[in-house]
Amino acid sequence: MMNKENLIEYIYSIADNSLILGQQLSELCGHGPNLETDIACTNMALDLLGQTRSYYQYVAQLVGANKTEDDIAYLRTERQYKNVLLVEQPSTHFGYVIGRQFLFDVFHLLLLEKLQFSKDETLAAIAKKGIKEVSYHKRFSSDWIKRLGDGTKVSHDKIQEAINHLWPYTEELFDVMPADKEAIECQIGVDAATLKESYVAAVSEIITEATLTLPETKWYQRGGKKGIHTEHMGYLLSDLQYMQRTYPNMKW
């Protein structure tokens, strides 16, 4: 049996990515480059928020004391959110949206493909369902990476700029935190470090096909997994938590 606190921490490190990325995508609804793309991005947001709910309902159950998914989603301090910095990067333009999505989707799918064999039945079930959704996300974002990369000169430069900005945030995906270690030992969690090789290979393949390059990076940004976020995160949470903070203890 895994220590409950650590299990919860471990779930946060997965679930918070879905929450924050879902929140970011949902903000774009109504502002996409055209109706079809708008509808597609919203579908991904709904998938991610659906996954978030499953994870948080599980956490609420583990915590007990009548906690709900919303307590978990809305009532933590910024330092308690454990998503990676990658997913909280702002949607500067559509290139960033696609770049962020792609760099996360590739990792997300690799993770869930392992997590479906977790000894924790709930996590395994959530992962199994998520694989189908995330496979589609990866297909969608990969296609768009190619369209933007091998589209026009303008789009090529814009997506390359986004990739250059985002790539330094990818290394954190593979950091193994103390809570993860126990999860891995109990065969509940996935050793993210082992996913790196497949990740780089999969990303490189699409990036090359898209006539893009991965930047030479000597220094990677990390911190999200420890709850040390970028400055965007505070604004993101202000929106997310606004109602629950302004009107505490109410039913909606």
């Binding site: 929140q23 949902s26 903000e27 609804c29 109504g30 708008d38 509808i39 919203t42 579908n43 947001a45 709904l46 928020l49 659906g50 978030t52 709910r53 948080y56 998914e69 919303d70 989603a73 809305y74 929106d239 997310l240 606004y242 109602m243 629950q244 009107y247 109410m250 909606w252």
Partner: peptide
């Protein structure tokens, strides 16, 4: 982005979609 619960958020998102 400011919907007060996750249930309300997904329902609203689906509606706007």
């Amino acid at each position: 982005t400011r919907a007060p619960s996750l249930r309300r958020k997904v329902a609203l998102l689906a509606k706007v979609q």
